[in-house]
Each structure stands twice: as C-alpha cells, then as structure tokens.
Design a protein around this nucleic acid. Structure first.
Length: 569
RNA sequence: CGGGACGUGGCGCAGCUUGGUAGCGCACCUGCUUUGGGAGCAGGGGGUCGCCGGUUCAAAUCCGGCCGUCCCGACCA
C-alpha cells in the first residue's frame, strides 16, 4: 500500500534536538528511522525499503561469487569465544541464562561458522567454501553516535571463506574485493577501497571500503592512485630546510621552552628542523623504555607504532621519563649510551636537528642522527596534508567504513580445530577470510553524500520508491481523478510509486517529496490537465525534465519512465 | 573511562534565578473556507514536568541520589 494517506511516513519539520549528523537529522525527519535508545533504532517502512534494497544488491553480488547464504544465531555459548581468546573483548555482550550457563550476543560470527565448518568439512574435496548471512550484530559500543552510523545493534552481511591454503584464501579474498567493488558501484556511493589495519580481528591483511562523508569517523589519505586509512598510511613528508651540520652538536640555553612551537620560535628554525622525542613503554616489556623520534612538525601514529614494535605501548609517565632520560620537555636521544632503544621515523632526512639535551632548560643544536646517536629506522608518523605520494599531494578526508575484508589465515581455524585431510591424508588447518559490510552505513552514507538543503536525494539504486507522485487539488476534482488514474497505470506498469493522495496543501506535499528524496517526482494538477502533460522533476539538482503525456497507455508510460530512470545517477 | 550539555504533551522550546492553578509554536481532533510551495477562522483533546528521596503549608522550580540522551576526547571486528 503506497498511498501516502495510509502509509506510515511520519515526516517532521524539525530535526530532533540531539541530532548532529546530516544523515541522523534527515533520516529521522523523512520518517525512515526512529530511536529506541542509545544506539538502538527502528527502521520504519520507507527506511526499511531502502535498507532491503541495499541488502538485495549485496546478496546478488555474494551469490555471483558463489556465496551460500545461511543464518546463524546471535545468542551463542561463550565457550568458542573463550577458545579464540575473544571472550575478553569489552564490546562483547555477555550474559547468563537461568541455569547459569555463560552466553554471549555475537558481535560477529567467526567462532560459530568455524565450529560448523570444523565439524562438517573433512576433506580437501569439501573446499573451498564461501558462507554468508545477513544477521544482527550486537556490540556494547562505548559511544553510539550519529543515528544509524554507529549503533549497538545492526545488521551486517558477514561472509567467511574457507580454503586449503594461503593461495586459495587469496583467491577468495580477491573474489570478495571484486564483489565489494561491484556492490559499491551499484549503490551509487562515492567510495574508496583503502589499506587498513587488521585490528582486533587479527590476520594477514585487510582492506576497508570507505565512503567519504562529513559525519565519517575515520580519516583517509588520498592521492592519485593511492588511498589508505590514515591509521596505516605512508607518504613522503614535505621538505624542510635544515641547518648545516656543525662539527659537533652545541648546547644552547632554552629556559622554560618545553614545546616544539616554543623552541622553534625562539631559535627561528622551522618546527620540522626539531626532533620530537616521544618515550613509550611497550605493553610486553614492563620497565623498558623506547624513545620514538619524529620530526617536530609530525605526530606519532599509535597504530603504526604498535605495528613497528610488534606490541601495543603507552606513553611513558613523567616519573619514568625523569628516571631514565631527563626532565620532561627537554629530553633527547644524545648520550643515552644504549640504555634506551631509539626509533627514528622514516621521514627524518639526513642532516642536523635540534633536540632536547636531557638537562633542564637546555637543548642541543646540530644533532646528526647516526653520528650523535644510534637508531633503528621505522615508519611511525601520521601522514598529513602537504605530504606527497609519488610526487602527488595527498588530501585527507573524513569517511565512514561501510565494509571490510580480512585475510584471517588460521587465526580461528587453529584454536577451533577446523582442519581437513589433504591428498596424502595429512590434517591441515583451513585458511580463512572474513568479510563484512553494513547496509545501514551504506544507507546513511548515501544520505550524507547526496543531501541538499531540501532533504535526501537518493541514488536510484537505493531510493525507497522510484516515483513520488504528487496529486494536487481537492479530492473528487478532475485533476485528482487524473492523478488516481496515473497511479493505477504506474502500478500496472510495475513502477514502484509512492502516491501522495493526502488532503493537504501542495507546499506540504512538495516539501515532503523533497525531504524523502525519491529520484523522480511526478506532479498532476489542474496545470497538467490543461497542457496534457505530467510534470517531471528530477530530485538530484531539482531539475525539471520533459513532461510525460497524460494519455500515454501503460506500455508507453512504463517505457518512457524506464528510459528516464536509466539516465539517473 | 575523562570533559561538557540536556531531560517540561508526538516534535521544537519557554517557565526554574526569586517555590504559589503548567505555557508557546508546530503537529493532532471537529466544523467551515482554502488547494501549484509547509493555508485561514472558530472550537477542542492531550503533559505522573526522567525516576526516587529530602526541605517546605506548598516543588517543574531548592537540595541529594539515581537513570536516560547527546556532543568532544579515549575506545571502536
């Protein structure tokens, strides 16, 4: 039933006071979603149509690469999670049943799908496999935000691949990358596939599908031919002019100057001619201190640092710094005599730098890495605007992660004993991949990317309806009769149409149509009866298109609309 | 987890400082008028003022505790 007079589409003139993100405001205002609690949302009929359109696209592309759809429970025994070491994850909801058995609400389904495969797959002949589902995920998020962009409960398409070896896993990974590319292309979103950190999934490699949008919570670094999550991005730093190397470093008085800005200002050298010393304590080596050096105008990237160290780390406390190095604010790499391991960032070019002297109110000028201290070279800085990749400047954009693909290897198959017998009868672990995609985020990202001052402007692949038909004039007038007839003809022609047959003024109908954002608006009023043409407006850009003759028969009407439809973004 | 803000009818808000019959706009219901850009007139319905406790003759208002929601940061397969 798609007569607006009988359809549940509660539009609002004003956005909820606590909404900030564009998609949050517009999806509530357009009557697509309603909030239940923090990070808990109901999809109303029109919103659910959009969500399910996205689901359909994903399903088609998963089936195309040989995926087999199944459904696994959200409520699960805790035991497999204990085996993989993931029971300790804070985001995992845990509960007890009435008998006191430990249960979890799944945040993803690696454990269960791997257990199934472990029991069912015996032979190399059973591989490869791609299994997937659309299922609710539950996560005890520290901070749900921005409508459906980050929620505690959401539907995810998650798929899992099972192969006999690394080469097979790579094949399945590439198949998923291709499927995801097609999915994203079909949704009409602007997106990038970027290199990403493997994070808590563990594993051997990963990409994320990022949709740039203002409310995005990630940052991506972009250059022609290059796209990466800022968490892992590498780039060439902007050149900085260094002073000539003196024969030896010289001690200079810098009373009270503890920051890069203060020191560089006082000495009239660029911030990039300083070395910023960042002492950290590795998580796996209590009592050990590592001194990380980056250029004064750069920032240490915690994730790249963790990858370089092979373990997480925390900034050293002031007491630890004072005990092992010198007064905080004046620490540096010179004279440590191997007591502290020194990591030097890759962006530090050869030359002379200003560093702390490990003495109060003193810095050293003309410090030359290699000559004045030994170091290990690492890439641990955060890329920034002004850097280049292949000579091309990078830009940094906020983006929302709408999908990801992971090479898991045997991260889950080993603890859960998912193995198969090869041709020689040897038992070998199964090589896995894991691939997620969030329809709700695709929907919200589309709203963010294409909204204008009037409301949502759906890409045609996601729109809740193809056509928003506005009937103008009172009920029982000839123009409304014409609108009714057109509605019936559109339905007969298989066009998905929302018919605004409400007894309200034209302004309200137009405003609601623009808010909801269906790609085509057809208007039938007295004017249409006079000219014989139905007015057609394209939502994207609010441009008028050539009118359609009111007296078209169903086949002609359908054909004309179909032609127009194909021309839409 | 740290910082900040908010909670009064479906939505947006005022009232709280200085305690005394709970108000406005939109939305909703009825009638009449109106129909190409969120209409007009008249009438009407709807609120345990987040919850619990305290102070007081009297609490939306003052005090205490709790809960909820949002924003920034931390965190985030």
């Amino acid at each position: 039933m798609t007569r607006l007079s009988q359809y549940l589409l509660p539009t609002e003139k004003e956005a909820p006071a606590d909404a900030e993100a564009i998609s949050h405001k517009l999806m509530v205002r357009a009557g697509l979603i309603r909030q239940v609690g923090a990070g808990m949302w109901t999809w109303l009929p029109a919103g659910w149509r959009v969500h399910q359109r996205t689901v359909s696209i994903i399903r088609e592309e998963m089936d195309r690469i040989g995926g087999q759809e199944l459904l696994m429970p959200v409520l699960q025994p805790a035991d497999p999670w204990r085996k993989t070491g993931r029971l300790a994850i804070d985001e995992l909801f845990k509960l007890l049943d009435r008998k006191g058995s430990e249960l979890v609400l799944a945040m993803t389904h690696e454990e269960i799908v791997t257990e199934h495969v472990a029991r069912v797959v015996r032979s190399y002949r059973d591989l490869p496999l791609i299994l997937y589902q659309f299922q609710i995920k539950e996560r005890d998020e520290p901070r749900p935000r921005a409508g459906v962009l980050r929620t505690r409960e959401f539907i995810m398409k998650d798929s899992y691949s099972f192969d006999r070896d690394a080469a097979g896993m790579e094949e399945r990974y590439e198949a998923h990358a291709a499927a995801y590319d097609r999915i994203m292309d079909r949704t009409g979103l602007r997106y990038y596939r970027v290199e990403s950190d493997v994070g808590m999934m563990g594993g051997l490699g990963a990409h994320e599908y990022m949709a740039p949008c203002p409310a995005g919570e990630n940052e991506i670094a972009l250059a022609p031919g290059y796209a990466a999550n800022v968490e892992v991005a590498s780039a060439d730093a902007a050149f900085v002019v260094l002073e000539d190397e003196p024969a030896a470093a010289e001690r200079i008085a810098t009373p009270g100057l503890t920051t890069v800005a203060e020191v560089s200002g006082s000495l009239s050298v660029p911030a990039g001619a300083l070395l910023k010393a960042y002492p950290v304590v590795p998580a796996d080596a209590a009592g050990k201190l590592v001194l990380v050096l980056v250029r004064g105008d750069h920032r240490v990237n915690e994730i790249k640092l963790a990858n370089a160290l092979g373990t997480a780390s925390r900034p050293a406390h002031a007491e630890e710094i004072a005990a092992k190095l010198g007064p905080p604010g004046f620490i540096g790499p010179v004279g440590l005599d191997g007591r502290v391991e020194i990591l030097l960032d890759a962006a530090v070019a050869d030359g002379a730098y200003v560093t702390g002297a490990n003495e109060p109110d003193c810095h050293l000028r003309g410090v030359v890495p290699g000559r004045d201290f030994k170091f290990t070279r690492v890439d641990v800085r955060t890329v920034q605007a002004g850097d280049t990749v292949g000579g091309q400047a990078i830009t940094i954009e906020p983006a929302i992660e709408v999908g990801n693909i992971f090479k898991l290897g045997t991260r889950y198959s080993e603890p859960l004993q998912a193995s198969y017998l090869d041709e020689t009868g040897a038992a070998l672990p199964i090589w896995m991949g894991s691939y997620g995609i969030g329809p709700a985020r695709i929907v919200a990202a589309a709203v963010e990317q294409y909204a204008d001052d009037h409301g949502i402007s759906w890409p045609r692949a996601l729109a809740p309806f193809a056509v928003h038909l506005v009937g103008i004039g009172k009920a029982d007038t000839p123009e409304r009769g014409a609108a009714e007839e057109l509605y019936e003809n559109l339905l007969a022609g298989g066009i998905e149409v929302l018919y605004d047959d409400r007894d309200v003024g034209p302004g309200e109908k137009f405003a609601d149509a623009e808010l909801l954002g269906c790609p085509l608006r057809l208007t039938v009023g007295a004017r249409a009866l006079k000219t014989g043409d139905v007015e057609v407006q394209l939502r994207r850009g609010l441009r008028s298109a050539a009118g359609l003759p009111l007296d078209h028969d169903v086949a002609d009407l359908t054909q004309a609309l179909d032609d127009l439809w194909r021309s839409l973004p």
